[in-house]
């Protein structure tokens, strides 16, 4: 997936997004034509900025958890002692992505109740696959010469992992995290069907009151966030990849 935008457009999108979140009323005349029967053009039940922050918090928390588990699992199954878990881990992570997020929400609500937790679980499960697969690729495709050199200088297994393997695999791991975040940003909106505080709340309010202005502002804010975060992470990845000096087509 590649979303390449010239820097100037990204800056404009970012500025527009921030302005809209802080001062949504300024955009009211623009959104007014989209409403019917004098409906409100801007969502006011809750501040858009605070919804955005809580949306990002849920996505961030789920991604951090998915990263810890997926990277940990990938490290485990690439060690001699954990090789036994490789087939199982692969299957489980794949199952996590096959499980529809709405079904995860539906099945976890009885255990966890309404609110943020079912959404966190759904995003966590859905986000594991890209991070796990990328980390696994990163750790298993290291040049043999590098690994032999590390062993030759008498590094212990732990030193090899932290000083050689992980730094070299880092750009790929970051790539997995990027994919996971972009998926989660959009998926988080359905969490609002089980009362999670995300931007989905605005969209659902729009669907219920037949207000296109609400649907559009919720959707566009999420899409703009996704594009901007994706671009930023892609940039970070390239910087890191250049530093690691290992030329590998991701």
């Amino acid at each position: 997936m590649r979303i390449g935008l010239p820097l100037i457009i990204r800056l404009i999108v970012f500025l527009l997004l921030v302005t809209f979140l802080v001062m949504p009323q300024w955009f009211a005349p623009l959104l007014q034509p989209l409403t019917e029967n004098g409906g409100p053009p801007v969502y006011v039940q809750s501040s858009l900025l605070s919804l955005t922050i809580s949306h990002l918090t849920v996505v961030f928390a789920a991604t951090v958890a998915a990263t810890i588990v997926a990277v940990g699992l990938a490290i485990l199954v690439t060690r001699e002692s954990g090789r036994e878990f490789l087939p199982l881990s692969r299957s489980l992570v794949n199952i996590g992505q096959t499980f529809p997020p709405v079904a995860v929400l539906a099945l976890t609500v009885p255990m966890l109740g309404f609110g943020e937790w079912p959404t966190l679980i759904a995003l966590f499960l859905y986000g594991l696959l890209p991070i796990f697969e990328n980390t696994l690729t990163g750790l298993t495709t290291l040049p043999v010469s590098v690994m032999e050199a590390a062993r030759g200088t008498g590094m212990t297994g732990w030193q090899r992992l932290t000083k050689v393997e992980l730094p070299l695999a880092f750009p790929l791991i970051l790539g997995g995290i990027r994919l996971s975040i972009v998926i989660s940003l959009a998926t988080a909106t359905i969490g609002s069907t089980v009362a999670a505080r995300t931007l989905g709340e605005v969209i659902i309010a729009g669907l219920q009151s037949n207000n296109l202005a609400f649907i559009l502002q919720g959707g566009v804010v999420v899409a703009a966030l996704a594009v901007l975060i994706y671009d930023t992470l892609l940039f970070a990845e390239r910087v890191v990849a250049r530093r690691s000096g290992l030329n590998r087509a991701a």
Partner: peptide, 10 residues
């Protein structure tokens, strides 16, 4: 990147 519920609505 557009959330599904929004795209349905749009």
């Amino acid at each position: 990147t557009i959330p599904s519920i929004a795209l349905f609505g749009i």
